[in-house]
């Protein structure tokens, strides 16, 4: 008799806890970011297409579907490292077939040479070039991702990629400037 009542009591308890847990699982469900969004978050968003995909998001989708993580030259080692830790795979060296890591650059249109053909405007993935047909074009420096895509379409080769110069607001303290002596 005691065994039966104990079993009944335990059964009721189990049922109650089960209900509480089940409710909590629904009520406090944590929506995690879908993988593609997380990968897209890591990619540098230059939209340069050097990976072979038309933009960063398509590459993120490709990675989520098992493509290599080392096809992003603008992101470089840091991006590969982040992607490796996110995807749980080994970090590889940058695939040289897709280009090499370079300093950040912005496009610059030599304005007196521009003929106003709008070809670069159509090529720009982030709409960072301003202009109209037969009007001079110019690059909005703050919006330029340095993707290089406007250089090739220019029929008069008036677009230069200029490395971004350092200013006091972008300057980083360098540890090398600290007089640190190595302990022997």
């Amino acid at each position: 008799m005691t065994i039966v009542s104990a079993l009944i009591a335990l059964g009721i308890l189990a049922l109650i806890f089960g209900l509480i847990l089940g409710y909590a699982a629904i009520k406090f469900k944590v929506e995690s970011d879908p993988l593609v969004d997380q990968i897209d978050e890591i990619l540098p968003q230059t939209q340069c297409g050097q990976c072979g995909y038309p933009g960063c998001r398509p590459y993120a989708e490709a990675i989520a579907n098992g493509d290599d993580i080392n096809k992003c030259p603008p992101g470089g080692e840091a991006t590969i490292k982040d992607l490796a830790s996110l995807m749980g795979v080994e970090a590889k060296a940058l695939d040289a077939a897709h280009g090499e890591e370079d300093v950040k650059k912005v496009a610059f249109i030599r304005e007196d040479e521009c003929i106003g053909c709008t070809k670069c405007i159509q090529a720009c993935p982030v709409d960072a070039i301003l202009g109209a047909a037969k009007q001079m074009h110019t690059v909005i420096e703050d919006e330029c991702t340095g993707c290089d895509l406007c250089v090739d379409p220019c029929p008069v080769d008036c677009i230069d990629m200029i490395p971004v110069s350092e200013t006091t607001s972008t300057w980083r303290w360098q540890l090398a400037s600290i007089p640190v002596k190595q302990v022997s």
Binding site: T46, G55, R57, V126, D127, E143
Partner: peptide, 14 residues
Amino acid sequence: DQADKARERFEARK
């Protein structure tokens, strides 16, 4: 921030 902006602009363009 810049990447976010670029993404936004890219998507807006698309």
